[in-house]
Structures are given as structure tokens and as C-alpha cells.
Design a protein around this nucleic acid. Structure first.
Length: 533
RNA sequence: GCGCCUGUAGCUCAUCUGGAUAGAGCAUCUGCCUUCUAAGCAGAGGGUAGCAGGUUCAAGUCCUGCCAGGCGCGCCA
């Protein structure tokens, strides 16, 4: 689809130039039609030129159409002008069959872009002080899916988890574990430190520390490792690909990178002292106030680490950085962006994606419970990996997600996951009964229904592009749902294993392509393909 | 007070960065299995897109002002 799009854009530019002497800058002038009834591709250029040319859009469209017709008769079966001035193209059978052949041959590589970027995506990064909540789960699944989408499209992606194994929170956490150790050893009443962690999971950590005879000095690293194990287990249960790098904040500090980053900024004259604290002039780069990086008591702030962390990411030579954060950190974006700019990089190099909150809804308790209280591990036990992923991915990143646990659990009509997976199950069933499994077919026997299904297949390109450029996996979910609808309707109206032999064989090939495409779509989202339901 | 997010059918959400008749699922109602899996299909009802202005050929989408909800505004992390 990509090459055709570029070719058609080139033709359209030439026509507009020769007919109206107007130069167009846009890189792509065609978009997917709102509905396939309108054709495969649409251009709104006539509408946009109407004012400038002082002509009616339809007249302009007609002129373009007649000039274009000659050039693209190979590509398009039909060009139609519709009401306000849309120019709609119906791709030719030659193009469609060519794309089908190529897709059958190359599979997922059919959609792969050429020159990928080197991308670092950081997500989850929950403090190693407790298990993952369902809110973390959303960040985990969305981050994993975005990474896969980028890879699918040809980027070289590194998945990273920033481990906050330093600082105040961790000290409190360690103290809490120690309190549990004393409690378990002596039987005395549990005395947690101020603001200490209350979760029962600390009992297990403390018990393990006792069992393994961990020295008091090693409690911190031991406890962090225990929590990392718990977090890794949850990520695994959600079907996440492994993180390439677990980046330790403590190591960043120990290796002197934080001090290094500060002196780097100091050399640029962006550091000053005031009221015994050290400040970074972030206002020079768009922040609304300067930020402290070293407190009056001499300790570094979290922001100081973050400056160093992002400097380190940039120094590692990535083309593009992505951070996934919770909504409670949105006020932090300007601060980090200012640091990026201060270090001499354009702020477009860092994309911060805010993943909105998750609330849970269950039948027995219709009141919305705070998602923070419920653990990922409980959720996955409840609804399974695929349903969890499907639901997590079925909203835009910026939308609040209400997770209907009962619906996700329900193995019935109601569950959109099954609606999509059912496509593969139905096709698999046909394939098991079919007598042919080769890819030989005659394109000319296809009916309009077949072609409609096929044309829908190639719309995946646009969903993928959208998901890629916006980092919104939901576009793929939406596409898969719509493809499923088209398939189910096709299935009801057309019997595959009956009638004309040539048509039957062609349809088996078509359905194989549908199955492959569903595998691509579900696969990139980390959701299982099901052959039997 | 300032900043960010959200407001679309009874409910949960889409609407491809300004386009075509605002679409799905759930819930309600009506049909369709001696035929490749009915976890499906066909159809009905359900809408002043929070409200009010503005920008233009075109606004759910962009701008302004209100209203409502969520979150954030530390020498916390």
C-alpha cells in the first residue's frame, strides 16, 4: 500500500501542477476512504484548492479526474467524484491481486517499513517497593504493544525499565521490611516507620530474608531484588516481552553520572546557588519555574537523577525516546523537556505518553474501586492474559479506562476479544476440512463480496501507520474489530466449501490471508490466535 | 488561583489530527441453525456530541468563555 500511495501522490501532484500550476508540498495526498463504498483511497485536494482557484470543488475534481484517468488506469478500476468534491479511487484487480500475492509470500514483512529509527522506550518503571497494580498493568501492556508496533514497522527498539532503587521511598521501604523482620523474629508488635509500607507482601520479603540469613546491610538490595522478581512475574503473566535493560538509579549515582550531568549544565552556565540550594535554570527552556537539583541539606533531588538519566539515554545514541508515565506525573513533563533542551537536543526527541488511570467495575460491587488497590496478578488470574491485554489496549492512552472485569471474564457474545478471535477459529475450522492448502488460485473468479473482504485486509496498513505515528495501539484493536465484522458477515453470506471449485480454492487462499492478517494484528498486540473455541 | 486530561446513545467507548449519512459493543425488542463453529448474522428503537459564541466551502474535531468530573502544582519520589 505504501508504494502505491506514493505513486498516486506523485501523479496527483503532476496533474495539479499541469492543470492549475499549483505546487503541493504534502507527502501523502491520499487517505483511506471513510467507507469502502467510497473506494479504497480518497483525496480532498479539490476541496482544499477551491478557494484559491475560485472554482467549485466538483469542477476541480472533474478536471483532475480526467487528467488522472490516463495515468492511473493500471492502478484504478474506477475514479469517482462524490458530492462536495471528493476524488475516490477504486484499486484495480491487478493491484489487489498483486498485493494479495505479495502478502501471502512475505507475511508480516509486507507491512514493514524500510529505514527504522533507533528508539528507546521506557515504561512501567514502578518503584520496587511493591507489586504492580492494575494501573501499572495498563502502562506495561501499552508500552509493550507500542514497542511491538514500532518494531513491526521497522524501528530498532530497546525496552527499558528504570529502577528507582535509591532515595527516600526506598529507605522507608527498607525500614518497613526491617520492622517486619523484627516482628517475625521476636513476636513483638509490628512497629512500622512513619509513612511505612503497609502491604502484607512485606511479610514474605521479611520471612525470606530471615530464611536466607540476610545481613542487615544487605536488606535493601535483597528486598529490591525480591520486589523485582515479583514485578517480573507480573510482567510475564501479562505476556510482556522481556525488558532489554533494567536501568538502576543507584548505579547512575554511584558511577558519578548525576554529578557529571550537573557539571555539564554548570559549564553551560545553567546552574546557580540560592538559599543554600543548587538550582537549574529550567525557565530558560520553557519551564514555569527553576528547579532545585541539590537541596540545602546537600542531598540530590529526584529531578537531578532524572536529568542524568535522560542525558544518559541521549548519549547512548537513540534517535527517539519514549517515556510512559502515570497521569500524576504530567506536571513533570515541562521539567524534563527543559533538561533535554538544555543538553542541546530538540525536545521532539522525547515523547512523553501519559497513560490515564484505570478503574475496575465488577458486578457484585458496581461502585468503582480505585485501580491502585487491585493487583495485576489478581486481574490476570481472574480474566486471563489475552482479555487483560485486549481491554488495556482498547482505549486511547489519554482516556480513562473502566475495566469491566465481569465482561472480560465472560466467555460469551459480550466479549469483544472472542469476537475477534472467533474469526481465526472459524477459518481454522474450514481449513481443517478443506482439501487444498496451496496458494494457487484464479483471481478473476472473486465476487464483489470476496473483493470487499480483500480490500478491507489492506486497510490494515492505515491502522498500523496510525498506531505507529501516534503511539496509540487502540487503532489496531479498532481495525481488528471492524475486519472481524466484515469477515463474520462474509462467512454468513458465502459458503466456502461448496459450489464452484475455482471459487472455492480462491476463497481458501483469501481466508488464509485473512488468518495471516489477524495473526499479524493480534500478534503485534501480544494477544493469542485461537484455532478452536 | 495556575496547568494537564476528560465530557459523544441508558452504560462502556470509537470517529484515522478539519471532511462524506456521528459509528461499534453491552442493555431492550424482532427474526435466522437438518448446511464450513449461533462466541455468529439480519433488523428496530435509542443523539441538540456539556453549554454559549467564533474561525471557513466544511467543526464532535481548531480558537475563546463558561459548567461538570479527574489529576497535578515541594529544597517528595
Amino acid at each position: 500500500m505504501g508504494p502505491i500511495l506514493l505513486k498516486l501522490t506523485q501523479y496527483l501532484k503532476e496533474v495539479v501542477k499541469s492543470e492549475f500550476d499549483v505546487d503541493l508540498a504534502e507527502s501523502v495526498l491520499w487517505e483511506p476512504s471513510a467507507k469502502l463504498e467510497f473506494g479504497d483511497l480518497s483525496a480532498t485536494i479539490a476541496l482544499k484548492l477551491a478557494k484559491q482557484l475560485e472554482k467549485s470543488p466538483v469542477d476541480i475534481a472533474e478536471i483532475i479526474k480526467s487528467a488522472l484517468e490516463e495515468k492511473i488506469k493500471d492502478v484504478a478500476d474506477d475514479i469517482r467524484i462524490v458530492k462536495p468534491g471528493f476524488i475516490n479511487i477504486f484499486l484495480s484487480s491487478r493491484i489487489l491481486s498483486g498485493m494479495l500475492d505479495e502478502f501471502l509470500k512475505s507475511g508480516r514483512d509486507f507491512f514493514k517499513g524500510k529505514d527504522g529509527r533507533k528508539v528507546l522506550i521506557e515504561y512501567v518503571s514502578a518503584n520496587p517497593t511493591g507489586p504492580l497494580s492494575v494501573a501499572h498493568g495498563r502502562q506495561a501492556v501499552v508500552g509493550d504493544a507500542i514497542a511491538s508496533v514500532l518494531e513491526f514497522c521497522g524501528d530498532k527498539v530497546t525496552r527499558e525499565y528504570y529502577l528507582n532503587d535509591a532515595g527516600t521511598q526506598l529507605t522507608i521501604f527498607t525500614e518497613s521490611v526491617k520492622a517486619w523482620v523484627i516482628h517475625l523474629r521476636t513476636g513483638n508488635q509490628l512497629v512500622l516507620p512513619d509513612g511505612g509500607y503497609k502491604g502484607e507482601y512485606l511479610r514474605d520479603v521479611a520471612q525470606a530474608a530471615i530464611d536466607e540469613n540476610i545481613a542487615e546491610d544487605d536488606i535493601t538490595s535483597f528486598s529490591v531484588q525480591k520486589m523485582v522478581d515479583v514485578i517480573k512475574a507480573s510482567c510475564g503473566a501479562l505476556g510482556l516481552k522481556d525488558f532489554d535493560i533494567w536501568f538502576s538509579q543507584q548505579k547512575l549515582i554511584d558511577d558519578g553520572h548525576v554529578e557529571g550531568a550537573i557539571s555539564f549544565l554548570k559549564d553551560k552556565g545553567l546552574i546557580y546557588e540560592d538559599t543554600d540550594a543548587v538550582w537549574f535554570k529550567s525557565t530558560d527552556f520553557g519551564d514555569d519555574k527553576d528547579r532545585v537539583i541539590r537541596k540545602a541539606d546537600g542531598d540530590l533531588t529526584y529531578f537531578a537523577s532524572d536529568i542524568a538519566y535522560h542525558k544518559d539515554k541521549l548519549d547512548r545514541g537513540y534517535d527517539f525516546l519514549i517515556d510512559l508515565w502515570g497521569p500524576d506525573h504530567h506536571g513533570y513533563i515541562a521539567r524534563v523537556q527543559s533538561a533535554i533542551k538544555a543538553m542541546g537536543y530538540p525536545d521532539e526527541m522525547l515523547k512523553v505518553i501519559i497513560i490515564q488511570l484505570v478503574t475496575l467495575k465488577t458486578k457484585e460491587r458496581m461502585s468503582k474501586r480505585a485501580g491502585k488497590m487491585i493487583l495485576v496478578s489478581e486481574l490476570v488470574d481472574d480474566v486471563g492474559k489475552d482479555a487483560a491485554r485486549f481491554y488495556y489496549l482498547s482505549r486511547r492512552n489519554s482516556s480513562h479506562l473502566e475495566f469491566d472485569v465481569d465482561l472480560a471474564k465472560e466467555a460469551s457474545v459480550n466479549n469483544p476479544l472472542y469476537y475477534v478471535q472467533y474469526v481465526c477459529a472459524r477459518i481454522s475450522s474450514i481449513m481443517r476440512k478443506a482439501e487444498w492448502s496451496d496458494n494457487a488460485y484464479d483471481f478473476s473468479v472473486f465476487t464483489d463480496d470476496d473483493k470487499f473482504l480483500l480490500r478491507n485486509l489492506f486497510q490494515f496498513y492505515f491502522a498500523l501507520q496510525k498506531a505507529y505515528s501516534t503511539c496509540e495501539p487502540v487503532f489496531i484493536i479498532e481495525y481488528l474489530k471492524s475486519l472481524a465484522a466484515v469477515f463474520h458477515k462474509f462467512y454468513e453470506c458465502n459458503r466456502v466449501l461448496e459450489g464452484d471449485l475455482h471459487l472455492m480454492r480462491a476463497r481458501l487462499v483469501l481466508l488464509r490471508a485473512v488468518y495471516m492478517l489477524m495473526s499479524c494484528g493480534l500478534g503485534v498486540l501480544g494477544i493469542s490466535v485461537v484455532d478452536e473455541m
